[in-house]
């Protein structure tokens, strides 16, 4: 959700940058991250977010050329994963009380979705 003045809600910018770093296989420079985000953010904004994330120890960095390359700290995510697994373990299924973006589906539905997806792809091409 964007705020009234068009800026993104708190957390969304960092989420975007963290998403790029986690999806990437290798450490990335600020310019790499900015490019991956599709030029949505200014270079300086990306740089500022990366520095803030580094201060919070969410990402690590090392010197590379004139700048830095960044990658996510894995310890925190591993710890979060085991706590998340523990939080959702047990009976009854605790996942059932949560809202899910990725909704499970059966084989027939998967087929339908692939068809729908193919339709969207075609429509997106002008």
């Amino acid at each position: 959700m964007t705020t009234k003045d068009g800026r993104r809600a708190p957390g969304t910018l960092e989420a975007g940058v963290m998403g790029v770093l986690w999806a990437a296989a290798t450490p990335m420079s600020a310019a790499d991250v900015q490019r991956e985000l599709g030029g949505e953010l200014a270079y300086n904004t990306v740089q500022t977010i990366l520095i803030r994330l580094h201060e919070k120890k969410t990402v690590e960095r090392r010197r590379a050329g004139r700048g830095h390359v960044y990658w996510p700290v894995e310890d925190a995510a591993t710890a979060a994963a085991s706590r998340m697994r523990a939080a959702l373990a047990g009976l009854p299924d605790r996942r059932a009380v949560l809202q899910h973006f990725a909704q499970a589906l059966d084989d027939a539905d998967a087929e339908l979705l692939r068809d729908l997806l193919a339709g969207t792809e075609q429509r997106r091409q002008p």
Binding site: Q103, D106, L112, L116, L117
Partner: peptide, 25 residues
């Protein structure tokens, strides 16, 4: 939405909405 749902394909749905495909569809 479709790509996220397809990645979970094969696992049983948590909620079924019935007619005309599940909630994701």
């Amino acid at each position: 939405v479709a790509r996220a749902a397809l990645a979970t394909a094969g696992t049983p749905p948590l909620t079924a909405l019935g007619i005309g495909g599940g909630a994701a569809v």
